[in-house]
Amino acid sequence: MDETRHGDLRERMAEASSLPAGDPERAAIEARVLDQPGELRDAWYALLDEAAATREALADVRPPIGLVDRLLEAPDRAPRRGLLGWRRLAVAAALLVAAVLGAAVLNSMVLAPSETETRLARLTTAATHEHVFDRHVSVETGDVTALDTALGDGLPFAASCPDLGDAITLRGGRCCQLDGKPVAYSLWRGESGHCSVFQFRAADHGLPTDAAPTRSTVAIPDDHGRTRTHEVVVWIEDGRGFILVADDRRLLPARFANL
């Protein structure tokens, strides 16, 4: 009988010795052990010593030299997918493609989006995500010319902000990428929210040198699971592509209001 009880206690001791110090279950087992013969007490302390040594041995792994630096650089080397998030991308892309497709059907009875439309849809979705999730600027200025000059060093083309009227004011900008290609990003502020403008070379994305402005509404789920819509205008002038993403239609320049 005693042997059975001791066997059960040993089993519980073995499990409890993995518990952290101060755990009530461990304390209860320890209290029981201290009432037992010396052999059990010795076994208990051996288990505790062994647990401490196991913990130390398992954690004793020398990280490779430069590991932290490589991990810090990991986001920069990762494929761009991460910036967008596939689920968000899929939802937004589906909505945008549907909008583009609808327009195409109405205008030319074409049943499927062209390659150009598909590429523009992808860029538009990526730009809207940048607008929603990453609006930081590396150059703070309200002066368009100064921003173009400042971004010039980081771009393989000369940035040139389009005329966006007086309703919104420039906050700054940065160099970034869309679909792996260089982009001049600028952030604007108006009364009802923000606008982002992405400027890129059309040729980088296999797009034509000119395309009339088209406007669409892109829905992006935010971090709370709410879907927010954004007004997006895309156009190409002389080989220079522009995507304007606005929080609100009231922020759109007058020339796009009736699109």
Partner: peptide, 24 residues
Amino acid sequence: AQPMPRPAHPGPSTPDEPGDRPGV
């Protein structure tokens, strides 16, 4: 001007942003 593009590697500042945006 900041050196080229680290879009996923934000730079120093964001004027009046983004805590005031519902999506952010």
